[in-house]
Design a binder for these strands. Structure first.
Lengths: 148, 148
DNA sequence: TGTTAACGGTTGAATTTGTAACTAACAAGA
DNA sequence: TCTTGTTAGTTACAAATTCAACCGTTAACA
């Protein structure tokens, strides 16, 4: 399906990655949007806190590579919905330690199961070793080593 | 690096796909943004017309899975920069056939070479058969068969 | 024909994101 | 102490995207 000039957009990795990412995100989005009215930035923050426990906004940003304004707004919305609490760090009062409330933890656990099922469904489209190779290559493309 | 509860966000395919797509897009964006001040929607339209020749906005939308308002605005901007012309289809005056101007074709050919180089650089990170498998899996994940 | 529905595309308002400037708190050196 | 610089986070404003309503044209069909 390449064009008359021999360049095939459907094979161009950045394009292909975007199409695949959008498709995969959309299906998952239906869940967190329908159940909790969340945005993409919000479930990311929720998952970071659910997985790693107490973290600061900066810590989430470093791990998720999200700009701090996105996180600031996502945190504000999650706080308004009583999904998390903020607590100034007494050792450095610039920092705010974030933590999920019980309601936030419940939402996280719920969505985590959805995520597990969905991820399994996606991976099941391929041979196990292919799926593993896919994850490995995506990690390589995502670049920047884990800042943990 | 998974959390205390055993869910590893860094392995979750929708998340991983987004991280990889964002990273790959960003590097390519630097080129079309710096050289032509284009947005993502604009280079996509440009490439579709460069590759497939004359197309309508609807045709591009079907192929690229972009919403028609995005295309409408991208086309308007590309037209303002004299990169394409519109021409009402006499057989159906609702439709507008789009076509690159010589300037648009030059921009396309320029960016096409950048894209080729960049794609090759990305693929070179993996064994050839792995890169091919990656593309195949991404196509599968992108779903929706080519509406050509 | 006349009426109604569907299609291709545009526009305006609301939402979301990006960019830059900003506040407040800490840190280092004179 | 008094700068000066840096970091954590917020806010204001501009740019981009989404959503819904819209216009003109074509199709379906009584």
């Amino acid at each position: 399906m390449d064009g008359k000039d021999g360049f095939d957009l459907q094979e161009f990795l950045p394009y292909l990655l975007n199409q695949a990412a959008e498709e995969a995100s959309l299906a998952f989005q239906r869940h967190y949007k329908a159940r909790y009215g969340m945005l993409r930035t919000e479930w990311r923050v929720l998952f970071h806190l659910g997985i790693y426990g107490r973290m600061t906004a900066g810590g989430i940003g470093a791990r998720a590579r999200m700009h701090k304004t996105k996180i600031s707004r996502a945190v504000a919305r999650l706080e308004a919905r009583r999904f998390l609490t903020r607590c100034a760090d007494p050792a450095d009062r610039r920092r705010e330690v974030l933590e999920l409330t019980p309601a936030g933890q419940a939402a996280y656990r719920d969505l985590r199961e959805v995520a597990r099922d969905y991820d399994a469904a996606l991976a099941a489209r391929f041979d196990p070793e292919d799926a593993a190779a896919l994850r490995r290559m995506l990690r390589a493309l995502a670049g920047g080593d884990d800042p943990g």
